[in-house]
Design a protein around this nucleic acid. Sequence first.
DNA 1: TCCGGTTCCGTTTTT
DNA 2: CGGAACCGGA
Length: 743
Amino acid sequence: MTDYLAELNEAQRQAVENIEGPMMVVAGAGSGKTRMLTYRIAHLVNLGIDSFNILALTFTNKAAKEMRHRIEKVAGSDARNVWMGTFHSIFSRILRIEAAKIGYPPNFTIYDTEDSKSLIKTILKELNLTTDTYKPSNVLGRISLAKNNFITPAQYNNNPEIQADDIAAGKPKIGLIFSEYVKRCFTAGAMDFDDLLLKTYQLFNEHPDSLNKYQQKFKFILVDEYQDTNHLQYLIIKKLAAANRNICVVGDDAQSIYAFRGANIQNILNFEKDYPELKVYKLEQNYRSTGTIVDAASSVIKKNKNQLEKNIWTSNEAGNKIRVFKALSDNEEGSFVAHSIFEEKMKEKLNNRDFAILYRTNSQSRAFEEALRKLNIDYIIIGGLSFYQRKEIKDMLAYFRLTINPKDEEAFKRAINYPARGIGDTTVDKIAIAAKEEGKSLWEVAYHIQDYQQFDSRVKRAVSDWANMIYRFHLSMEDRNAYELAYDMAKSSGLLKHLNEDKTIEGIGRSENVQELLSGIKEFSENPEIEEKHLGIFIQEIALLTDADKKDGGDDKVTMMTIHQAKGLEYPYVYIVGLEENLFPSQMSLHSREDLEEERRLFYVALTRARQKVFLTYAITRFRWGQMVNGEASRFIDEINPVYLDYPVAPVREERDANFPYVSPRPVKPANAPPVKVVLDPNFMAGDVSSLQNGMEVEHNRFGRGKVLQIEGNGDDKKATIFFQEIGQKQILLKYAKMKILQ
DNA sequence: TCCGGTTCCGTTTTT
DNA sequence: CGGAACCGGA
């Protein structure tokens, strides 16, 4: 018996010791899930299982890194070979090895969201479509949805239901854009985030030898945060686990907060159907939070209908009640939080790093920054624009990417005329046309620009100078270490000089950022633990990094971040701010009861990050979109059982409920949600609501029951403002409405 | 081709 | 408000 088992409670120990066969661990917030996973892997290794045969999929790279660290403490260097990382990073690793089988170069580029949108914009231009009707983010969302449901462009275009949806939404060409997008990614040797999953699935589907290879390799599979996996991830795991069936998934359905990204809560709810011999363990004891916090959080989450049964409890002391603060403005909210942190720090002898401020949207950080600065409290903001997304960094990376994979179209467009060298949009367009005619990449045309008569000699000169420079980099790529090459590029391209010429404050900041990138590469090149020091390796590593991964816990700073980013973290003191109706829960995301439940789970996640004390704040006026807007307390405050609250003002809930539950005081803008696939229910009549009148009760197939408040417009534009009991007020375009009149 | 000024528009979460 | 897109002059 090894001593680490003694550190576990009964449920955890069983989950650790039971290594064979499929298994699901339902782990409540703060129940020692990470500890259980860590020890389980360590246990496998100590039992003599080769770490080479273990695959552990985590949600963030940071979680993987931390876990690896902790495992090595228990199991020593034997655990070194465990494949541990995010779905995206593990699959990109597999894909680079197997690239040839699916027709990709091993040095393929990974397009981030910005690259994808930019490619969509180019395609729109070429197809003479406007970005008004086809909003790139919307189109990308559609494409992503299709990919994640394993729908190919051909299937997309031939599916009458999808086509009808697109036509109804006034966007019949999405299928066309989709096919072009896929084609272009392929010629550019690029994969977007979804491709990393999709191509892995295709690889395993079409190449049984590859599947077999990885099935044999990964004899033991562990998946963390299983509640946030999507359909495609689910399918891949299922395939990989099919041979050995040693799969262990860990998750908490109450903390599923990524449905907007395609996460499918059914994966965890239905896991048992795939594996009848499944063993289920429940970790229900919370070690993290005070009794008050645990019970308050439970009182909120139990309002959700969709969940696995569990009973979270703690033996920790009850602790303080949850303090609610009503501020008159967003600035007052900021200063309250800052002063409160200051006071608690003094009173309880705490450090800055013991505090976290959590909000729904990144843009809310401003007021808190200012207030904390005034009191000289150090803080760090996680998220927002990540370091690698900044313009100057992406410009620099474009040169790196192009050198590694010259076919990369997005990198090409960024780098060719930055810094300005007399190659304008007209020239790039001409290159693109030539490339399209010959089915070549932009790079191939640019490199052979002398062969094309349509360019004048000045342009030819500029383009070929540039292309030769890139080619020179490309040739020396293998021989030089990453730093030498990167520095050479930064210098020869004129980028360093260009940035140094800008003496504005922002310009100096940009210059410093590029320096930081270069020193990051230097560090990479000098790191003795890394064997291959090519720039290509560096680029691969950072392509999937996010701000959360970069964060170092060393500094003594107050942490500010969105609740999504707080997943998996914990702090003694947590301030959940901006708790106003329409902000949290966000009015942008309330399209159905499921959406409200997800927002509620988000609130649950926020509450359960805290060990000691929770503060909830809201502001009744807030500066947003250039103007003051009124706000009122979020329904979530009212949903906490009041015995856990220290609430100076009586809840306003009853007043609000007099008419309907969940009234929003102001008219809600019609939601421009991405078109969701609507399942037709024969009981609901589509469009035939011509006799609709004010005051009528209706039932919508997605939004449930409601009452008509107002009807406006006529013909195809006829709209009704309806108050839905579940989600509040909403405008419905009657032409596409799928609802029936109840009275 | 480039740069600066102006207008317009959207407002969520992220690998 | 702040960023993107657009337009017009150099």
